[in-house]
């Protein structure tokens, strides 16, 4: 089965220095599949999502690669068409529910905008659908919430709204960028369960960015491990937890606390492993330079 989202040899680099933040990354998410994307902070997980959605910061640029969404390479489309294509087929669940909703606009407008803009619906129809969606993500009294401002709602509530608005226009692909990191633990679980349930019900292709392997084991079918912009492992969740192929992944897995024995495994990734994977990154970098 060929994937709905296929990233091939994607390199993203800083504009001024030319230093690569993503190093020839390839990744594929099959239609309806949930793929985890893990790696330590700064590895470039968000950068992959931003490249796909066309919201890279100004200071960086794509220097090579292809990003196929269905049967088109987004990087070959003219900007206006690319925006339209992405808007109609993809959506984002952002990390921080505090800044992801416009503080000076009521919730209702922010959710219905998607339907009006992308699907060309009338306001009234969009509003009715927004009410349904809010109910679907278990928001009590959706009519009141539609009239509220973001600061009147709790973090968990806001994240539910963001999930609802991500699914609103029935996108084929959703990129969730650490959607639970900003929430407290009890709410995290509810939100995870909600995303999983919504994904299953809507059959959405989901790229799930996280640094929590525990979350991956519960939500994802496959996963990619990123280190310093280099993809070091690309496997199924079952295989990964049985026997990770790359030493860095193995160390990452060993460093994840287990509920049965919370203290035993709480050790950092060993220096030897880090040195090895660094060397690998350097080798990839030299090879890439030489090839140009």
């Amino acid at each position: 089965m060929s994937g709905y989202l296929r990233i091939r040899n994607l390199s993203v680099a800083l504009r001024d220095s030319g230093a690569r933040l993503l190093r020839s990354v390839s990744l594929e998410v099959a239609a309806g599949e949930v793929r985890g994307l893990v790696g330590e902070s700064g590895a470039g997980k968000s950068m992959i999502g931003k490249a796909v959605l066309g919201i890279l910061p100004r200071s960086v640029e794509v220097v090579e690669g292809e990003i196929w969404l269905g049967d088109v390479d987004l990087l070959r489309l003219p900007p206006a068409e690319r925006r339209k294509r992405v808007g109609a087929n993809a959506a984002l669940i952002p990390q921080d529910p505090l800044t992801a909703l416009n503080p000076s606009r009521r919730i209702g407008g922010q959710v219905t905008d998607r339907l009006v803009d992308i699907l060309g619906w009338k306001r009234a129809k969009a509003e009715a659908r927004a009410l349904e969606l809010l109910a679907e993500v278990h928001i009590p009294d959706p009519a009141r919430v539609m009239r509220s401002y973001p600061h009147e709602l709790s973090g968990g509530m806001r994240q539910r709204i963001l999930i609802a608005s991500a699914f609103a226009a029935e996108p084929r692909l959703i990129i969730a960028d650490e959607p639970t990191t900003a929430l407290d633990v009890t709410v995290q679980k509810q939100i995870l369960r909600l995303i999983a349930a919504m994904q299953a019900r809507h059959g959405t292709t989901l790229l799930f960015v996280t640094h929590d392997l525990g979350v991956v084991s519960k939500v994802c079918q496959s996963l990619s491990v990123l280190y310093a912009g280099l993809m070091v492992e690309d496997t199924t969740v079952a295989d990964f937890f049985r026997a990770p192929a790359h030493p860095y992944s193995a160390a990452l897995l060993a460093a994840t606390p287990k509920y049965t024995d919370p203290w035993a495994s709480l050790m950092p990734v060993s220096e030897a492993v880090i040195d090895a994977v660094r060397a690998e990154v350097d080798a990839a970098e030299t090879e890439w330079r030489d090839a140009r």
């Binding site: 931003k50 959605l53 066309g54 919201i55 925006r83 339209k84 992405v86 808007g87 109609a88 993809a90 959506a91 984002l92 952002p94 990390q95 921080d96 800044t99 992801a100 909703l101 416009n102 922010q110 905008d113 998607r114 803009d117 992308i118 963001l162 608005s165 226009a169």
Partner: peptide, 13 residues
């Protein structure tokens, strides 16, 4: 730089 602007951009506004 806020996420709500990124979301609006993704939605093609």
């Amino acid at each position: 730089a806020m996420d709500y602007v990124a979301s609006a951009q993704v939605a093609g506004m």
